[in-house]
Design a binder for these strands. Structure first.
Lengths: 374, 374
DNA sequence: AGGGAAATTTGAATCGGTTCAAGAAATAGG
DNA sequence: CCTATTTCTTGAACCGATTCAAATTTCCCT
């Protein structure tokens, strides 16, 4: 018949191989997966049949259905930016590297689930993974779909309810270390540069005495940092109410505006605590513009330990975040299973050269000086 | 019975939902996947039953088996370093970003397959993906296992056999552009810094006149670059045989050794063509140590356009590689299917400040000067 | 050779859906 | 009201393996 040649050859299945080798399908399966259970001669017959038929080995689909495990864990890219943001370096890259390390050890695959916004839930429902690592900030509403599928879930940067795994950093303690360092150096006149997540375009100066409940700082970790600073200052007899706090938008521009505001409105400051290296680096830059010497005239502490912090001039004292370890911890929880765990990782102050004891009273030059910029 | 409480509740399946809703399993399936085929009232009854039973929607395992598509593509980490190398920035990160972009558009997942060496083949056999992007260099032997599974495959940096998809860069043309630039500036005294992939620890100086078949340069793209250089020089009447070629090991140390050798053994050179920005940056550094001015006394061209190239002093003229686009192209081929394709992407010379016309004869200072280093 | 233990092999159940031809019900047309 | 359509539903086949109790062989001793 003419149609013969148009027929699609159905792909070879284990059953076909079994038949060709003259064994049962069960034995054929064992020949591939538990060869020690099969007599060498038979094993060989199966192998021969397989290669004769061009059979590449058991299809993972079948196995998957049967034994349920995907041997892969999933990560959802944060925000609405899509997958490629995960490779743009910095935080996400380090985080993934930590996860990847553990996946490697476990011989599991790491699956990056695509999708933005609503599509993400869809992605969660269909992902071929055994568990998910979710970002608290944007993906908290994905916990439910994942759980309903019976998947293990780890939520980052959030305590989570007591039966959801979580991994977060001890931001409060990190902030305490930073503040303690400055207090220990003898500083008494502090200012705090905070970030503001609202989409505002002007920085806000909260003068001493202003009630701090008006702060716009939104994320838990920012609040933790602030409270860490507050605690240590309080222990040193300084009320947070007396400390000027500047909130700037997280963009570089916002950071510079905040830095300028610091010099303009709080010139008596000898030590600046910040919520992020971005802000601290802006302060360094602005200080340079105004010929204010860091750390002689002003000590600056960052937060996060960006790569740029070590290269800054002067190298920035800042708080290191174990981001890679965060990834590792999250992945390990997923693989280990067991009852819900709540991991809190310690931060560590890295002392570099942007901090020093304050200048003696009287020898400090006025900070408010015209910027050199045009 | 006492055991009652110990019984494992079997997970809810579509069948259970169908029964609870009083419809056939087929209808229940449609209610989820093709709701337009189901009367609204019935659809709702199914939804109600599902939510009452805590059913999260059809399990992907079942669907997978039936319709075969994983909606994911796989990437294998190069080398024996494992997964986490993919996030260490630079080449792999850019490459993955390109792949990720396309996955996003297609709503597919990106799966990073773990495993090193032999385990990789195992990973290929079990990966839950529809296609693979493989690195030529280490993964050529993985093409077969992937193909046998009937998966689409794209091989990078290699022409591949004519029925294997491939994506590569036009290194020869990139090299031509670089050489042409220097020839156009008037240079006639060239040297070439090449890389050596063997695990040697000393650089090799191939003096003019030496037969070049002794070069150790191993990768196709390195040979392409060399041949591009050679072609253009030949067109300018300069035989490659007259050009000193230095092969250095790819480590930073090797690069510096090669750079030193250049100044020591080929001091009359006015223009250096390199196989990599790493080498070119080492030359810049060594020139600085020896107080040789670039580009006044020596023009240097890199290859790859590393991020550091633009920041170098002076900013390095180099050949830009569209790595992100490489990733995109590979992913697109996988998703588009169709007959095998062989994509060759163009490179582009980026002229910065490390190249200039040669100094006039006679005014050039002797290059061989004692290095300032201790 | 005979009996029991150990090593292999078999066959059928199961994993959780999707799909499609065929039947049933609802709707439209005359 | 009856027939022709159109819209929904059903039921069974199928996707490709793994697993395990039971059946069969092989092996080892006496």
């Amino acid at each position: 018949m003419a149609e013969r040649s148009h027929e699609v050859i159905p792909p070879i299945k284990l059953k076909d191989v079994a038949k060709a080798a003259g064994v049962s399908q069960g034995t054929a399966s064992n020949a591939f997966n538990r060869p020690e259970l099969v007599r060498p001669e038979v094993r060989e017959r199966v192998a021969a049949a397989a290669s004769r038929l061009g059979y590449a080995g058991p299809d993972p689909r079948g196995r998957l259905l049967r034994d349920g495990k995907f041997h892969a864990i999933g990560v959802v890219p944060p925000g609405a930016f899509g997958l490629s943001i995960m490779f743009s370096g910095g935080y996400t890259a380090d985080f993934l590297a930590g996860i990847a390390e553990v996946c490697d050890e476990m011989g599991a695959a790491l699956t990056l689930v695509s999708g933005r916004d609503q599509e993400k839930a869809q992605g969660i429902r269909n992902a071929l993974v055994d568990g998910f690592i979710l970002n608290r900030i944007e993906d908290l509403d994905l916990v439910d779909p994942a759980r309903r599928r019976g998947l293990a879930v780890v939520v980052m940067d959030e305590d989570g309810d007591s039966n959801t795994n979580s991994v977060r950093l001890d931001d409060r303690d990190g902030a305490r270390q930073a503040a303690q360092h400055l207090v220990g150096l003898g500083h008494r006149r502090f200012a705090i540069l905070s970030v503001m997540r609202e989409d505002r375009h002007e920085s806000i100066f909260h003068a001493p005495g202003e009630p701090h409940h008006r702060l716009l700082t939104g994320f838990t970790h920012d609040r933790d940092r602030l409270s860490g600073y507050g605690e240590v200052l309080a222990e040193a007899g300084i009320s947070l109410d007396e400390v000027p706090i500047i909130e700037g938008y997280v963009s570089p521009k916002g950071a510079f505006a905040g830095a300028a505001m610091l010099f303009d409105r709080a010139p008596e400051t000898t030590a600046v605590l910040t919520m992020s290296d971005g802000l601290a680096l802006a302060v360094l830059d602005e200080a340079h513009q105004r010929s204010i010497s860091v750390p002689r005239d002003l000590s600056v502490v960052g937060f996060d330990d960006w790569a740029a912090a070590a290269r800054a001039d002067p190298p920035l004292t800042t708080v290191f975040q174990p981001v890679v370890e965060k990834g590792r911890a999250a992945a390990r929880i997923l693989f280990e299973g067991g009852p819900p765990r709540h991991v809190v990782l310690p931060l560590r102050l890295v002392v570099r050269s942007s901090t020093a004891p304050p200048r003696e009273e009287g020898t400090r030059p006025a900070m408010r000086r015209k910027p050199r910029r045009p």
